Simulated assay, not measured.
Amino acid sequence: MCDYTQVHYKCSHIRYTVRAWCIKYQETHKRCPANVVAIEYRLDQNCGPFQSSK
């Protein structure tokens, strides 16, 4: 399984970002089930292009 970080944003969306690709993915380029190994909170950021200007 590939290791992912679960990221929480101010806009209440959650995204999963890869931390490390597993050997199976590196060989086949087919994604396997995500293995969440960390949770990160970016509560000062929106997740997409609609981020507010400061």
Rank of each mutant, 00 (worst) to 15 (best):
V36R: 02
I14S: 06
F50C: 09
A34H: 11
V18L: 08
K10W: 11
E40H: 11
Q45L: 15
G48L: 06
D3Q: 08
K24A: 04
I14N: 07
I23G: 06
Y16F: 15
E40V: 13
I39T: 12
S53Y: 08
P49W: 09
Y41V: 01
E40P: 04
N46Y: 08
S52V: 14
I23Y: 10
C2V: 06
V36A: 01
G48N: 14
P49T: 12
K10S: 14
Y9S: 00
Q26D: 11
I23F: 09
V7F: 02
Q6N: 05
T5V: 14
E40N: 13
K54F: 09
V36E: 06
K30Q: 13
D44S: 10
D3K: 08
Q26L: 15
C11V: 10
W21A: 10
C32W: 07
R31Y: 14
N35G: 00
Q26F: 05
C47A: 00
C11Q: 12
R42W: 03
T17Q: 03
I39P: 00
T28I: 01
P49C: 12
C2F: 05
Q26T: 10
C32F: 09
W21S: 10
E27Y: 00
R19V: 12
R15I: 12
C22E: 11
T28E: 03
S53C: 06
A38I: 03
K54S: 11
R19W: 04
N46H: 09
D44P: 00
V36L: 04
Y16I: 05
T28Q: 01
C2K: 05
S52A: 14
K54D: 09
S52W: 11
R31H: 15
N46D: 12
Y41L: 03
G48M: 06
I23Q: 14
C22H: 11
Q45T: 06
R42S: 02
W21G: 05
T17M: 01
T5A: 14
Y4P: 03
Y9E: 00
Y16S: 10
C2I: 06
A34F: 10
A38Y: 03
P49F: 11
T17S: 02
Q6K: 15
E27G: 01
M1V: 06
A34M: 15
F50Y: 09
Y41S: 05
K24C: 02
V18S: 04
G48C: 15
T17N: 03
K54T: 08
S53R: 09
Y4S: 03
H13E: 13
K10M: 15
Q6L: 12
Y25M: 01
C2Y: 04
S52L: 14
R19K: 12
P49Q: 13
